[in-house]
């Protein structure tokens, strides 16, 4: 299986042995060995999956890298983190995705009404299977645990993704001050309940 390694905070190193890795088009900065880069027309999701991405605006332009050697990916000097997935499902914004094992299955899912207010769209990307996924964040990625006794509230602008058995809802914190224009700047949040982890970045979009 392809190996993912972080070489400095902002550079991802992927080792391939006649294998495939998917990455955001244009993210390659260097490689050694023999590599081939091809635009992935359907992103491994089949015709229907690609069509769904188009309509839902969770579009991402992917390329497929095939070969043997080491390939380096980076994007706009953003910090990179590798999240291993073991028979789980990760929900992530397509704009935070950098690269993933070609063995993982991606799809689009309805994210609920929260997307409309947070400006991140009504749909989100799901990744499932066994393998590694590399995500980009502004500042180092922060992992927060959620347990049934301890729900977590997150600012939608800092939210990146989550995995596990988690339900999300939208909560408002509106009082008379908000109404008279004296908002605290934190008028709505995501509330995550259940068991799993939530990923956030220390910057707000």
């Amino acid at each position: 299986m392809s190996s993912f390694r972080i070489n400095t905070d902002r550079l991802l190193e992927v080792g391939l042995q006649n294998e495939k890795v998917m990455a955001i088009a244009g993210a390659m900065v260097a490689y050694t060995g023999t590599m081939k880069f091809e635009k992935s027309l359907l992103g491994g999701e089949g015709f229907f999956g690609a069509l769904k991405r188009k309509v839902t605006n969770e579009g991402m332009s992917l390329m497929q890298t095939t070969g043997t050697g080491t390939v380096y990916f980076a994007h706009n000097a953003a910090e990179i983190a590798v999240i291993p997935i073991n028979n789980e499902k990760l929900f992530i914004e397509s704009s935070s995705l950098l690269a993933y094992d070609a063995g993982l299955k991606t799809n689009t899912a309805f994210a609920g009404l929260r997307g409309a207010t947070s400006g991140q769209g009504l749909f989100t990307t799901t990744v499932e299977g066994n393998g590694n996924i590399a995500v980009i964040s502004r500042g180092n990625l922060i992992t927060l645990e959620v347990s049934p006794s301890n729900p977590l509230f997150v600012d939608p602008d800092a939210f990146i993704g989550y995995k596990g058995n988690i339900a999300q809802e939208f909560v408002f914190d509106v009082n008379w001050r908000t109404m008279v224009g004296q908002a605290s700047g934190e008028s709505y949040q995501f509330k995550f309940t259940g068991q799993g982890v939530v990923y956030i970045q220390p910057a707000e979009r």
Binding site: R10, G26, V29, A30, F37, S61, M63, H75, A77
Partner: peptide
């Protein structure tokens, strides 16, 4: 794919790259 051309370096030495394009 956004990677239609690359520069190939051969010989003995070091190439420096940055994490951004």
């Amino acid at each position: 794919s956004g990677e239609s051309y690359q520069v190939k370096f051969m010989g003995q030495g070091t190439v420096y790259i940055q994490a951004s394009e």
